[in-house]
Write a protein that binds this DNA or RNA. Structure first.
Lengths: 344, 344
DNA sequence: TATGAAATCGTAAACGTTTACGGAAGCCAT
DNA sequence: ATGGCTTCCGTAAACGTTTACGATTTCATA
């Protein structure tokens, strides 16, 4: 069922059918109606390859996710709502969104090169931004519109949206200090992911703002999953004087951390304060519930989409340039996992 | 950088360049080498739209995931490894895999219709199969190659691969009975997802095989997330005679269930036996660790890819038809969450 | 009635590939 | 020397669209 068949059936030229379907002005309203009815009747949908070839545009946006990165661990619950937000914007512009999952056994650069080379997408959303991210320089020099979820130290002019991990760390530190905690540990990603640096920076700044000196021994690099949390707890227990509080970059870590402390007879929320990252169904039903930070992932997705569109010539007019380079604030949600320090 | 530019630069016709790149036989090895070198030098990658238009094939496979479905909750940790498995097979055939996420605010049928109509993909992997799934009939009549992750009651001839939820339920029941439990509850998905029926069927069969009569009051429909688990526990606590064991269809439910029981002063693993579904980092670090079932998601992905390829004419020769309609066995991993019944 | 503008539609080229077909060599055997 | 076979390569059509351009009709106006 091609546009030719449709035109033949209606005794109309191909061009007119195309114009009718695409809402061009120079077509009789009556003819347009006939075309639309017939198109619906036969279930005609334009062949994307044909369109793309002619227009030089694919009407497809790619959302790249690296499963090798920590963030992939909570990939489902995190990315799904973001996706929906992005899609809700793109739908209005007839743009399709596809997820490009880059597995651990594939080089992200090569993957990106293939996708971009094939002219597969018109634009890209890049997540899990590294501190030094070759994908960014690659996309910049290829002049492919993109936006990153997570800022980066990589130079160049491009839009990014980041969660305020610096603020999260600072708020957590301030809260724990007010609770009387003095030795506050922090669990950070072991990889080169940029949010790790931002998170740690917020931690350092908040400490120094409160006149506490930074102690490298209180920084625990780990994978952002349950096992990582377990290891953090193990390392904390091994110290001569155990920290009385810990801030985690990821809520999954809390599960492993809880377990390790239980094994040691230490009760999170009573004997040690824990602040995690993201509020979720999980954080609400852990025992104890996790003190963490709330964010509307759907809204985040919407902003990502808008930022990307603002860099795409075809859509830029509708999306002002000022919606980019955004640090997304997050709201603290108190849980049972932290509280006043009443120890020695 | 099109094939034309490449040809011009080499003083060769377009056709020869194309044949050289595609490994056709009627091209001088020396010429082919020149072409390949030049292609690499200029970073030439064939335009996918051009190829697709000519060949009528897109070299793209879609993996459809509905975020409205329970399975999406653990989407990240579940689907990512499956994806990698699928990709590892497709990579060998130059096929790109994209994830098509169907949000809650979009009708799956309409979404599928758009994707298929646009000739966006050559084949599809469908997950979260419903007991009665219109997507299946749609794809069958459109003659689009596809495979479903999860069997269905929907009629027709198509390949599917399913996890052995029936076996899981049966094994769990048998184990708990051997432990002396008599009142064994089960948490099942509240939706029309087919695995719910399969899971429940396995439960019923195992009971009847052991001479225990089926009690509808022991079946607790719930969402497959932490909150669902919480509700299941609440409902169990409300019964005059509480069950002594419970089987969950999903490991996330365990978190909420644990919490509710803790709140009631009941210790999972000691006062009540819990068997969950999938072994994961999470199941291993919960307290108590979850008795559950192990599965290699990567291998599952590989099988899915092979099953799909076996239905695609261009690849069928390499993939015998006997790799389809597979029920995937799973291995029990004992945890701390269940054990002998020593109650009243 | 003649004129010009507006409305509507058909024609054909173009997008970047692949591939069927045929032509031009080169080679061997008759 | 002729014929046939093989090897290699160029030509051109085709895939399904969109869109610039021009042609035709309509209609109001002078």
């Amino acid at each position: 069922m091609s546009i030719r068949d449709l035109a033949r059936h209606l005794n109309i030229s191909i061009g007119t059918v195309s114009r009718a379907l695409n809402g061009k002005s120079d077509v009789n309203p009556e003819t347009r109606e006939r075309v639309l009815v017939a198109a619906k009747e036969f279930g005609y949908v334009p062949n994307q390859s044909g369109r793309s070839l002619r227009q030089g545009t694919t009407n497809t946006i790619g959302f790249m996710i690296e499963s090798s990165i920590e963030t992939a661990d909570n990939g489902g619950s995190f990315f799904m709502p973001v996706f929906e937000g992005v899609q809700s914007v793109f739908r209005r512009h007839q743009l399709d969104l596809v997820a490009l999952l880059c597995g651990t056994d594939e080089d992200p650069g090569a993957y990106l090169n293939r996708i971009v080379g094939r002219r597969f997408v018109d634009g890209l959303i890049i997540s899990a931004t590294m501190r030094n991210d070759p994908r960014i320089t690659f996309l910049l020099e290829r002049k492919i519109p993109f936006v990153t979820l997570g800022r980066s130290a990589t130079g160049g002019q491009y839009p990014w949206i980041d969660l305020d991990f610096e603020g999260v760390a600072a708020t957590a530190v301030a809260r724990l200090l007010k609770f009387g905690h003095q030795r506050i540990a922090i669990g950070v990603p072991a990889s080169d992911i940029n949010l790790g640096y931002v998170f740690l920076e917020g931690y350092r700044r908040a400490l120094s703002a409160n006149g506490i000196s930074f102690d490298p021994d209180l920084v625990f690099p780990a994978n952002s999953n349950e096992e990582g949390g377990y290891r953090v707890a193990t390392a904390m227990l091994a110290q001569k004087q155990m920290p009385t509080a810990v801030i985690l970059v990821n809520e999954n870590m809390a599960i492993g951390l809880y377990r390790r402390f239980y094994e040691a007879g230490i009760h999170p929320g009573r004997d040690i304060a824990v602040v995690g990252f993201r509020e979720s169904t999980q954080s609400r039903f852990l025992s104890p519930t996790l003190t963490c930070f709330r964010i509307s992932l759907r809204d985040l997705g919407i902003k990502l989409a808008e930022a990307l569109l603002s860099t795409m010539p075809a859509f830029a007019s509708n999306y002002p340039q000022d919606s980019i380079d955004l640090v997304w604030p997050m709201e603290l949600v108190p849980g049972e996992s932290d509280g006043p320090w009443h120890g020695t």
